[in-house]
Structures are given as structure tokens and as C-alpha cells.
């Protein structure tokens, strides 16, 4: 019955609809992100300074990169940024997991708790920064006032100025702001968790730690990766916090890559050099995002949800 076709087959037309639908998005991003970045890539090879427009054409090759790579202050800021991100992301994951497990256990008032938990996510980073600048203020801050009223310490702890404490306060603010991303997504993961494997594991003789370790946690990991990916998309918003709280100071104790870029670019108006630094920070962000995104894709496959 089925005859092999000898007719010339019509070439299936290529469907241009998705290209058409995606084109506005890509056009905007090319205009706002790609083109400026190419431009700045160019300026990172020049001696461009804002105050001297003609310096845009002073080609100096890799000298900007050489300069920043030999600058110990740059490496200090770079290292601090890595430490900052690693500590913040890990703490956010751990606290987020803890909070999710905690709220998952609570039955009464759970919805309200969940809503409250989401609020920090919506705070403007600049507000978070301000809020903690106020609370950690050595003179009139809530924290020092409370310690004083309770008679603990001598009352004037310089939270934002002191060497290790300065870093601590900005990490605290960052973790305060972003833990909810993890908590929310891990909680969603817990809700989506099927009961059968849990019960099967219990029947198989696992204690509750083993159940958590071998069943719950692996199931939650894709959700953690979603959170990591979302977070890594916008890690640099920590700039806002630091800018308000300490401005990178004092004496560069809280200087991160991003505040350094702002200082060199705008305050010292060395655009070329700032752009070179900016490229390093971009590569850093891309590396973070790419890492978590591939993890997410792998985890998705494992969950059987991939196309």
C-alpha cells in the first residue's frame, strides 16, 4: 500500500516566526549591551580619559591590562570580591536551606511567613545598604544602642570601619538581602517533593539524617541551582550596598572590584583603565553564571524535564 515517493519533495520551508519573535529582544540587547561593550573593549586598549576627549584615539595596546595586573590594590580587590561572593553564596544557600526546612515544618501561619520571607528580595539594594548603615552606625545605630542599653561592651563598636567587621557587615547585608531567593526556591522544591521515595527510604531503614542526605537533598539541588543562577545573574548589585555603606573604604578595606571600577572610571576619570577592569569583572560574572547554568541544565536532565 505504501509506495515510496518518487515525486520531488517540496523542501520544508524554514519557519521564521521564532526569529521574528526574538528579534526585538536581541536588537535591544545588542544596542544596549553588546555595542557599548565592544566600544569599551576598544577603549580598554586606549589611554582614554574623560577630561581629554582626544585621548580616545591614543592606542596603548595592553598597557591598561598590564597596569591593573601588576597593581596589588587591584588584586586585593579581586581577591576580596571572590571571597565575598563565595562566602555570601554559600551562606545564602545554607541559611536558605535551613529556613526552607524550618518553614516547611510549620503548618500554622506558613503563608504569612513565606510572604515576609520574600520581602528582602524586593528591597532596593541601596535601601538595604542604607538600612544597615543606619543599624550598624557606631554612634546612633540600633545595634550599638542596644548593646549599650544591655550593658554589653563599651558601646562604640565601629562596625563599618573596623578591618574584619567592615567586611562582615557588607556580607551580612548581602546575605540578608539574597537568602530569600534560596529559601523561596528550596521551599518550592520541598513542596514539589514526591512523598513515595521518602517513605520508601524510611521503610528501607534510613534514619532521618540519611533520608535528608540521600533523598531530599539531591532532589532539592536543581532548585538550588536555579537560585544560584538567578543570583549570579545579578551578583554585582552588591555594588549598591557597598557604595552606600562604606563606599569601599575606609582605606580600601571593603573595596570590591565594582567599587574600584567606579572610583577609577568616574572619580579619577581614567575610562580606559576602568574599562579594562570592567572586562575582568564581566568575565568573572559570566564565569559564575555559566558555571551554575550548566549545572542547572545537567540537573534538569537528571530530573527528566529537559527537551
Amino acid at each position: 500500500m505504501s509506495i515510496v515517493s518518487v515525486q520531488p519533495r517540496r523542501k520544508s520551508r524554514r519557519d521564521w516566526t521564532p526569529a521574528l519573535l526574538l528579534s526585538p529582544a536581541f536588537l535591544v540587547l545588542i544596542f544596549v549591551v553588546l555595542v557599548p561593550l565592544l566600544f569599551s573593549l576598544y577603549t580598554s586598549f586606549t589611554n582614554y580619559r574623560l577630561i581629554r576627549p582626544d585621548s580616545l584615539y591614543e592606542w596603548i595596546g595592553l598597557r591598561n591590562y598590564q597596569r591593573i595586573f601588576t597593581d596589588s590594590k587591584f588584586w586585593a580587590a579581586f581577591g576580596r570580591t571572590i571571597i565575598f561572593l563565595t562566602l555570601a553564596l554559600n551562606l545564602e544557600f545554607i541559611f536558605g536551606l535551613g529556613i526552607a526546612l524550618l518553614i516547611n515544618k510549620i503548618t500554622w501561619g506558613q503563608r504569612t511567613l513565606r510572604t515576609i520571607m520574600m520581602f528582602p528580595m524586593m528591597f532596593s539594594p541601596i535601601l538595604v545598604g542604607y538600612q544597615f548603615k543606619f543599624i550598624f552606625n557606631d554612634n546612633i545605630g540600633l545595634l550599638n544602642n542596644a548593646l549599650q542599653s544591655l550593658g554589653i561592651g563599651d558601646g562604640a563598636i565601629a562596625w563599618l570601619v573596623d578591618k574584619p567587621l567592615g567586611m562582615f557587615t557588607i556580607i551580612f547585608a548581602e546575605v540578608w538581602m539574597s537568602t530569600s531567593v534560596f529559601a523561596i526556591l528550596l521551599l518550592a522544591g520541598l513542596f514539589a517533593m514526591p512523598r513515595d521515595p521518602l517513605e520508601a527510604a524510611k521503610v528501607d531503614g534510613c534514619n532521618s539524617w540519611q533520608v535528608f542526605r540521600h533523598i531530599t537533598l539531591p532532589f532539592l539541588m536543581p532548585f538550588a541551582f536555579i537560585a544560584m543562577t538567578i543570583r549570579s545573574l545579578d551578583v554585582a548589585r552588591a555594588y549598591d550596598i557597598v557604595d552606600v555603606m562604606t563606599g569601599g573604604g575606609p582605606a580600601n578595606r571593603t573595596e570590591l572590584l565594582w567599587t574600584m571600577i567606579a572610583r577609577v572610571g568616574y572619580d579619577n576619570s581614567r575610562m580606559g583603565q576602568a574599562n579594562a577592569m570592567a572586562y575582568v569583572s564581566i568575565l568573572l560574572s559570566i564565569a559564575f553564571t555559566y558555571y551554575f547554568f550548566t549545572k542547572l541544565i545537567a540537573a534538569r536532565k537528571y530530573m527528566g524535564g529537559a527537551e
Binding site: M1, S2, I3, V4, S5, Q7, R9, S12
Partner: peptide
């Protein structure tokens, strides 16, 4: 008449007459 369907390079219906 000789109906053929490809998904990309994969042919899943090979010339149906009905």
C-alpha cells in the same frame, strides 16, 4: 498522496497514500 513528514532530518512518515 505520497505524504511525507520530516522532523529535521528524521523522516517519520514515509509517503502515505490513502
Amino acid at each position: 498522496k505520497d505524504v511525507v513528514k520530516n522532523y529535521g532530518k528524521l523522516e517519520v512518515v514515509h509517503g502515505i497514500n490513502l
